[in-house]
Amino acid sequence: MVFSIPAIILVSLTIYIPFLMSSYYSLTEWNGISKQAVFIGFRNFTALLQGKKEFLTSLWFTTKYTIGYVILSNLIALLLAVALTKRFRLANFFRGIFFVPYIMSMTIVGFIWKFIFTSGFEKLFEFTGWQLWNYSWLGSSHLVFYSVVFVGVWQSLGFYIVLYIAGLQAIPKDVLEAATVDGASSWQKFSRVTLPLLGPSFTTCIFMALTNGLKVFDIILALTKGGPGTASNSVTLQIYKEAFTNNNYGLGSAESIIYFLFVLILTQVVLSAFRRKEVDL
Rank of each mutant, 00 (worst) to 15 (best):
G129I: 09
S141V: 07
G167H: 02
L132T: 14
F115K: 02
V153H: 02
L281R: 13
F190L: 11
V216F: 12
L59C: 04
S253N: 06
Y102N: 12
F244K: 04
N74K: 03
S186I: 09
A47I: 13
E54T: 15
S256L: 04
T118I: 12
F150A: 13
I258L: 15
I71V: 12
F39K: 13
M208T: 11
A37M: 01
S191W: 14
K277Y: 12
A47L: 13
K241R: 14
L124V: 09
S186R: 11
D280A: 15
F125H: 15
E278F: 13
Y146L: 09
F125K: 12
T194W: 08
A83G: 13
K173M: 07
Y259L: 02
A178I: 00
Y160H: 11
Q188C: 05
A81H: 07
L210T: 09
Y146R: 07
I33D: 00
T245F: 11
F99Q: 08
F127K: 13
F190S: 02
L210K: 10
V279A: 07
R276S: 13
G226R: 07
G68W: 02
T128Q: 06
T118P: 00
A77Q: 10
A178V: 00
F159M: 08
T107L: 14
I108N: 06
L264C: 05
F42D: 05
G32M: 07
G250Y: 07
V216C: 11
F244E: 01
L80Q: 10
N92Q: 10
N92S: 11
F61P: 01
T14L: 06
G139F: 00
V270I: 15
Y102V: 11
K86A: 13
Y16E: 04
L197K: 06
S26K: 04
A7W: 14
F115L: 03
S156H: 10
Q36I: 08
D182K: 05
K277N: 14
K64L: 08
Y160S: 02
G110V: 02
A7C: 07
F99G: 05
V193C: 09
L72K: 05
S141H: 05
K277F: 13
A47Q: 14
T211F: 10
I103G: 05
G139L: 02
N233E: 14
I8D: 00
F55C: 10
N74V: 03
A243M: 06
M104D: 06
S34K: 04
A231C: 03
T267M: 09
G252P: 08
L132R: 07
A81G: 04
I258A: 09
E242Y: 05
L20Y: 08
V193Q: 07
G229Q: 06
S105E: 05
